[in-house]
Amino acid sequence: MKADPAVQRQLLELAKVDAELSRVAHRRRTLPELAEIEAGEKTVREKRDALVSVETATSDLDREIARQEKEVESVRAREDRDRKLMESGSVGAKQMTDIEHELQTLGRRKGALEDDLLELMEQREALGLDAQRTSAEVDKAVQAVEAAAARRDEAFKDLDTTEARRKEDRAKLLPRFPEPLLKLYTRVYDHKGIGAALLRARRCGACQLELDRNTISEIKAAAEDSVVQCDNCGAILVRTLESGL
Rank of each mutant, 00 (worst) to 15 (best):
D115I: 05
I219P: 03
A77E: 14
E242I: 02
T30D: 15
D116M: 07
A6K: 15
T162N: 00
S243T: 09
R239I: 14
A148R: 03
M96S: 13
D160W: 14
S90W: 05
L198H: 06
V75F: 11
A197G: 02
G193H: 08
E46T: 11
K110E: 15
L182I: 00
L237C: 01
R176I: 10
E218Y: 10
A66R: 06
E87I: 12
V52L: 07
Q95S: 15
T161S: 05
T43P: 06
L120F: 15
D169K: 02
K84G: 15
C230W: 09
A35Q: 14
R187S: 08
V142C: 02
Q229P: 00
E13Y: 10
L127S: 02
T97R: 11
A171M: 04
E71P: 00
D115R: 13
E119R: 10
V72Y: 01
R200C: 05
C204R: 03
M1L: 07
A235I: 03
I194S: 02
Q8P: 07
A126W: 13
H26C: 04
N232G: 01
A235Y: 12
D225P: 08
E55T: 12
E55V: 10
K42H: 10
V145A: 03
K110A: 07
D169Y: 04
I194P: 00
T58W: 04
E36G: 10
S90K: 14
A197F: 07
I219K: 03
K42S: 12
A235H: 08
E242C: 05
A150I: 04
